[in-house]
């Protein structure tokens, strides 16, 4: 690219990219809004305990906080590895 091209270069039409990125991050942040700070820590410690007994993946433990009709529900799910017979 010549120096003239460089000087004449227009900024790219990046608004669409910005909108898409914001859509995703805003949705993600809204879903964890108001959740206690200790949630990621709790998840890690649970994972350690579970791993003493079962060999599970790092992303096997899923924690989410839901709110329905005034109650806060901490939902915890652990995906166990497939049971191998014998």
């Amino acid at each position: 690219m010549g120096i003239l091209d460089f000087l004449k270069r227009k900024p790219e039409a990046t608004a669409g990219v910005a909108k898409e990125r914001l859509r995703i991050i805003v949705a993600q942040e809204r879903s964890t809004r108001g959740a206690p700070d200790y949630l990621p820590l709790l998840r890690n410690e649970l994972l350690e305990v579970i791993r003493k007994y079962v060999n599970v993946d790092v992303d096997a433990v899923n924690i989410s906080l839901d709110r329905d009709s005034g109650h806060e529900v901490l939902e915890l799910s652990v995906a166990l590895p497939e049971h191998k017979p014998g």
């Binding site: 227009k10 900024p11 039409a13 990046t14 608004a15 669409g16 910005a18 909108k19 914001l22 805003v26």
Partner: peptide, 18 residues
């Protein structure tokens, strides 16, 4: 002008995101 050129989020974009 920058919104029209697609360089800047539009009023509608911001309203939709938020």
């Amino acid at each position: 002008t920058r919104v029209e050129a697609g360089e800047m989020l539009s009023v509608k974009d911001v309203e939709e995101i938020l």
